[in-house]
Design a protein around this nucleic acid. Structure first.
Lengths: 188, 188
DNA sequence: CGCCGAGTTGAACTGAATCAAGAAACGTGG
DNA sequence: CCACGTTTCTTGATTCAGTTCAACTCGGCG
């Protein structure tokens, strides 16, 4: 649990009371490999911190899933758009390995926003971080070739390439598994 | 100036004092058509509300600019990543037509965050909105063909297609002007 | 051991890029 | 307000990155 506190303190040093209040709301939850954490159509009711494991974000399709994100140990995640809008999620969340989480419900988070001075500040800063990530990704998709996107991913998030099956990485950078296999051969 | 207040009240009804404090910081500024509002390398020091006009976001390149966003009348904009991180912007902001803004400096905004109860709340909600937009765009770039992205843009933001030169739209959806010209011919 | 999903490789195909040239629209100065 | 130069848009021909379809290999698991 300390790693979550460190996470927050890095954003902004937290008062002990605020932290007390916050951490009292956290609930531990564990999932086996390949478990669905959230299914398309459900409303996301959690903001989760990954104690251990990897989570994949994907839109399920008959042909081929569209994988568009990953979250790792030490990171927060959520189907954030569903969480914010309270509308059904348009995608699934899945544990790629055995995964242990600390979870916060939507209502608890709203209470935290209201009760603690730091709530909105943290919410804002967390959201700003998400925005910056998406912005980077947008530019990568617009201006880089498939091969450049792969090399870029390798540079920025080597853990993705080390730990995640090729087919999901291919989908993430917007190409077919075959194309990625050829890129790998070419550059290695 | 009322339209800005409406903007905020839509997010969250504002107290008159908070609004007073906020609006006292706003400065009016006007730019002619094609003016650079911010140049790559500068640190963005403003959050701006568009009273009138259109703003283009682009990465300047010898070959061909990469246009990746637009902002219209009644919207807030900023080179938000530079504004947040206080690092030089990696892109330019340009007025596509004569443009009138209400601007807030970084320091003023920080003061607003600290002094008013609503500051962080608004900051958070504004950022959440930006995040949702980027998320949509990511999925559009990943799962739609060029033609679908064009039709999609047409549906979601017809004002873009009506008011913005083809070459910028082409860049925005990630193709060449030639390709977009052909798509237009095909579907009309 | 055998099966099944993941990864690789090959061949044919295709959407979009590139190169090139002409037409239309736009803006600026006389 | 017209004339000219510049920029944007269109259209054609060629090329290329990445898709699709298909067959084969590899590794893990029941």
């Amino acid at each position: 649990m300390e790693n979550i506190r460190h996470f927050f303190d890095r954003l902004q040093p937290q008062s002990d009371e605020d932290w007390q209040f916050f951490s009292s709301k956290l609930v531990k939850k564990e999932f086996p490999k390949k478990a669905l954490l959230l299914e398309k159509g459900q409303i996301e009711n959690h903001l989760s911190f990954i104690k251990k494991g990897i989570v994949r974000f994907y839109i399920p399709e008959e042909e081929q899933d569209l994988t568009f994100g990953f979250a790792f140990e030490g990171e927060f995640f959520s189907a954030y758009d569903s969480f914010l809008t309270r509308l059904p999620s348009t995608y699934n969340l899945q544990a790629l390995s055995e995964t242990h989480l600390w979870q916060l419900t939507y209502d608890d988070l709203q209470e935290i926003y209201q009760q603690t001075g730091a709530g909105n500040l943290l919410g804002r800063q967390a959201c700003e971080g998400l925005f910056l990530k998406k912005q980077k990704r947008e530019l990568a998709l617009l201006q880089l070739s498939a091969e450049e996107r792969y090399v870029n991913l390798f540079r920025e998030r080597p853990e993705v390439i080390r730990q995640i099956p090729l087919m999901y990485i291919a989908s993430y950078i917007g190409i077919t598994p075959q194309a990625l296999s050829r890129i790998r051969k070419r550059i290695s």
